[in-house]
């Protein structure tokens, strides 16, 4: 009897793997193979050796750009958290209808192309845009420079990435057992204490998931910082594109991409040890 059950479960265990087959094949052909190609280029072009990596790891330009990339991703993640957490809280604690309405508004920005959203910020923050107009109508003489600064690119990236944060936190908040809050209250926890000791720890997985997603996606941002950011604060993806477009430096560009990937994997690794990567998918 026992044996039968174990055989049955073994057969059942094969199913998930079979279902994964098409996706695995797809990833192999369109992700793993090209990635292997990138690795190969990074050590063979223009000549065999590790000189591309040496350049990336020691050159002051590259160090600067990498540092800036991680700093920007960190700032964007924090901003998304501060914007997203209260909104997710509102969604989790309002009526179902209102929550759906907010969710619709948030996901609507996903229906608009990335590039259009970036250009929309150019119009909004531009010299003749509504934001400058508002600032001037409040009596400020000098036109502030909003576009082509760290401010404008950060703002646009937060706008683009905040939905990832909100949805992750919302999904966790929604599942919180209300009786936990009630029992905490019955024991005298109030306001800040209730939030700090009960609610915040319960939502921590959502915060961690959202943060990792936003951070990792932000590391690879290309068009938004190029179009909206300041020329002094380049991000890695823009520089990789520039290396290849301007210098045909496929090897150097590949090495930069691999370093970026490597550091990202290290960050994910740290996250995994701390929280468990499997929690990312709910």
């Amino acid at each position: 009897m026992n044996r039968m059950i174990s055989r049955l479960s073994e057969q059942q265990n094969l199913w998930p793997w079979l279902l994964l087959l098409p996706l695995s094949a797809y990833l192999l052909v369109f992700f793993a193979v090209p990635l292997a190609d990138v690795v190969q280029m990074s050590v063979t072009e223009p000549t065999l050796g590790l000189q591309n990596y040496e350049k990336v790891l020691t050159g002051s330009l590259y160090r600067k750009v990498f540092l800036n990339t991680f700093m920007t991703a960190g700032i964007v993640t924090l901003c998304c958290l501060f914007v997203g957490y209260p909104l997710a809280y509102l969604m989790a604690h309002t009526s179902r209808r209102n929550a759906m309405l907010i969710l619709l508004l948030i996901t609507m920005s996903f229906w608009t192309s990335f590039l259009v959203r970036t250009y929309a910020w150019m119009v909004l923050l531009g010299n003749n845009g509504p934001v400058i107009w508002l600032i001037q109508s409040m009596g400020f003489e000098e036109k502030p420079h909003l576009l082509f600064t760290r401010f404008s690119s950060t703002l646009a990236m937060v706008h683009i990435l905040a939905p990832y944060m909100i949805m992750n936190i919302y999904s966790v908040m929604q599942k919180i057992d209300k009786s936990l809050i009630l029992s905490a209250e019955s024991m005298g926890a109030r306001g800040a204490s209730l939030f700090r000791h009960i609610y915040l720890p319960l939502t921590a997985p959502g915060i961690a998931n959202g943060s990792v997603l936003v951070f990792v996606i932000c590391l690879g941002f290309y068009v938004t910082p190029v179009l909206l950011g300041s020329p002094r604060e380049q991000m890695a993806a823009g520089l990789i594109g520039h290396q290849i477009e301007e210098f045909l430096a496929f090897g150097l560009g590949s090495a930069m991409a691999i370093v970026l990937l490597g550091v990202t994997l290290v960050i994910l690794g740290i996250y995994h040890r701390r929280f468990g990567l499997d929690k990312l998918w709910g």
């Binding site: 002051s60 330009l61 600067k64 750009v65 020329p231 002094r232 380049q234 520039h242 301007e246 210098f247």
Partner: peptide, 14 residues
């Protein structure tokens, strides 16, 4: 021009 472009890039970011 190639080397000058590379120098120009470093100059831009500095």
């Amino acid at each position: 021009p190639h080397e000058v472009s590379a120098r120009f890039d470093e100059w831009l970011a500095s």
